[in-house]
Amino acid sequence: MDIETLKLLGAGLCMGLGAIGPGIGEGYVGGKAIEAMARNPKMADKILSNMLVAMAITESTGIYSLVIALILLFVV
């Protein structure tokens, strides 16, 4: 395999494998937040903003793999 093929393969694998963890994590965060909102609708606003922040943090590993995939595709 030449280097171009390996680059494309690496970028695809990086993004695909890196998306597994954040997917599970965000689903967990969202599910729990909705559970909490259903139990206590008065707190829904506060829970929503906290949920968004928590989701963004969970997402960060996915974003790292995205950045690495982009670097592999367009820079290296």
Binding site: A56, E59, S60, I63, Y64, L66, V67, L70
Partner: peptide
Amino acid sequence: ISLSARLFGNIFAGEV
């Protein structure tokens, strides 16, 4: 790194 890469990754990926 995490603060900057998160913002950059999201916006750049949206454009791409």
